Measured scan of single mutants.
Amino acid sequence: GNIFIKNLHPDIDNKALYDTFSVFGDILSSKIATDENGKSKGFGFVHFEEEGAAKEAIDALNGMLLNGQEIYVAP
Rank of each mutant, 00 (worst) to 15 (best):
N62A: 15
Q69L: 15
G25C: 03
S30H: 05
I12F: 05
D59Q: 14
V46Y: 00
G68E: 08
K15V: 06
S22T: 14
E70L: 11
D13K: 04
T20R: 04
K41Q: 06
L17K: 01
T20P: 02
I58T: 12
S29F: 01
T34D: 09
F43Y: 09
I71K: 00
L17I: 08
D13Y: 04
G63R: 15
L65S: 08
I12M: 05
E50H: 13
G1A: 07
F24D: 00
L61E: 04
G63V: 04
V23T: 09
L28T: 06
L17C: 12
L8K: 01
S29V: 01
I3R: 00
K15M: 06
N37H: 14
N2H: 01
S30N: 06
L28W: 08
H9A: 09
I27L: 05
A33R: 07
I27M: 03
A74V: 09
K55N: 11
K41S: 04
L66G: 05
H47E: 02
A16Y: 05
G44S: 04
G44T: 00
K39E: 11
S22L: 15
A16S: 15
E70S: 14
G42C: 15
K15N: 05
N62L: 12
K39P: 04
Y72K: 07
N67I: 11
D11H: 15
N67Y: 06
S29A: 03
G25H: 00
E70H: 15
Y18W: 07
G42L: 15
D11R: 07
A53V: 14
L28R: 08
G52D: 13
Y72H: 06
A60Y: 07
V73D: 03
G63I: 02
P75H: 14
L8C: 05
I27P: 02
G52C: 12
N37R: 12
I58C: 14
T34I: 11
N62G: 12
A53H: 15
F21A: 09
I32D: 00
L66Y: 09
E56G: 09
F43W: 02
D35T: 14
D13T: 06
N67K: 11
M64W: 09
S30E: 04
P10Q: 15
F4V: 01
D19P: 02
G38D: 10
I3F: 01
N37Q: 11
N14R: 03
K15A: 06
N7I: 03
H47L: 03
E70T: 15
N67A: 13
T20K: 05
T20S: 15
G68A: 13
I71N: 02
G44V: 00
G25S: 06
G38P: 02
N62T: 14
I32N: 03
